Measured scan of single mutants.
Amino acid sequence: KHLIERYYHQLTEGCGNEACTNEFCASCPTFLRMDNNAAAIKALELYKINAKLCDPH
Rank of each mutant, 00 (worst) to 15 (best):
L44Q: 15
I4K: 15
L53K: 08
A19D: 14
L3F: 14
C28T: 08
E13Q: 15
L32N: 15
A39C: 11
F31L: 11
N50P: 10
G16Q: 09
I49F: 03
Y47K: 14
I4Y: 11
K42G: 03
L44W: 05
E23S: 13
Y7F: 11
E23H: 08
C25H: 00
N37Q: 12
P56L: 14
C15M: 00
C20F: 00
C25Q: 01
F24H: 14
H57G: 13
F24N: 12
H2W: 02
K42F: 02
E45T: 03
T30A: 13
Y7Q: 01
Y7M: 04
N50R: 11
N22A: 03
A39N: 04
I41G: 13
F31P: 05
A26Q: 05
E5W: 08
G16A: 10
S27G: 08
T30D: 08
E45K: 06
Y8S: 09
A19W: 08
L53Y: 09
C15R: 00
N22M: 02
L3M: 14
N50T: 12
I4S: 13
C20Y: 01
L44Y: 15
E45N: 15
G14A: 01
C20N: 00
Q10R: 08
S27P: 01
N17K: 14
C25P: 00
E18V: 11
T12F: 04
E18P: 15
S27I: 01
E45G: 08
L3Y: 12
L3C: 13
I41N: 12
L46T: 03
Y8V: 12
T12G: 02
L53N: 02
N36M: 05
E13S: 13
E13N: 07
R33Y: 04
M34D: 11
E18R: 09
E13V: 08
E23L: 07
A39S: 06
L53T: 07
E18Y: 08
A51E: 07
N22Q: 03
H9D: 04
I41W: 04
Q10H: 06
E23N: 15
H2A: 10
P56T: 13
N22L: 01
N36V: 11
Y47G: 13
M34S: 10
K1M: 03
E23V: 11
C20S: 01
K42P: 01
G16E: 10
D35C: 06
S27L: 02
A43H: 00
N50F: 06
Y47A: 15
L46S: 07
L53P: 04
P29A: 06
P29D: 03
L11H: 01
K48W: 03
L11G: 01
